[in-house]
Amino acid sequence: MTPLLTLEGVAAGYGDGSVITGVDLQIDRGDFVGIVGPSGSGKSTLLRVLLGSVPASAGRLERPGGTRLGYVPQVEQIDWDFPVTVAQCVLMSRVRGRLLPWASKAEKADVARVLDRLGIGELAGRHIRALSGGQQQRVFLARALLAEPDLLLLDEPTSGVDVRTRHEILHLLGELHDGGLGIVLTTHDLNGIAAHLPRLVCLNKEVIGAGAPHEVLVPSVLEATYGSPMEVLEHGGMRVVVDVPSEAQIIQLRDRSA
């Protein structure tokens, strides 16, 4: 099977410096990959390299011609006051193929279908700000899906949402993956998201470890990734990552609370 994306020794960043270096990664059709790492580790930069919006300054990135990518940005990057309704926002991804500004009947039907699929069909006429966190994520997911991508890239899809919404988003992504869609996402949430994914990449400027959760959610890889000791417990067949504060940190916290 031809990989959708292949990175070999890729370095990338903004300006003169590199945020990520020496990244080797292969994404195959139907993969479901989570990129984890601390803040500033280069997760979003790696995602942008995969997307093509940040060029690789070194190494090789290979993407077969015709591979279609869908991208769901972080909700913090969205201008929620921008005057667009849900349907107008979703239709943006149909930027090619029709010159006229207004949507054709077929396009309207496609937008309605993808919104219905994601359970927000009744919100088509709403302004994007007038939605809950989960609904907002679904709108941008719908925009990406309307382009019928082979691979979906999501930047922190569960950042700032409550537990129930996080479950809904994870469930939704699972359904899309079951339908054959490749998915790569970044996340801070090791227990709520990463532990449920079939494949993880631990990143801190470079790839520290990659593989199934039971292979990479281990103390040695996590400590190398996050630079602080962590324990991994087993609970109901799942791996649960627990911070292990140092003795000095515990004493400091006790002193503060006293």
Binding site: R48, L51, G52, S53, L69, Y71, P73, Q77, I78, D79, F82, V84, Q88, C89, L91, M92, S93, R94, V95, R98, P101, A147
Partner: peptide, 16 residues
């Protein structure tokens, strides 16, 4: 369509 996309979300517009 291009103007709207670029005005709202230039990064994703470029990637699209």
């Amino acid at each position: 369509r291009s103007l709207l996309f670029v005005t709202f979300d230039p990064e994703v517009a470029e990637a699209s």
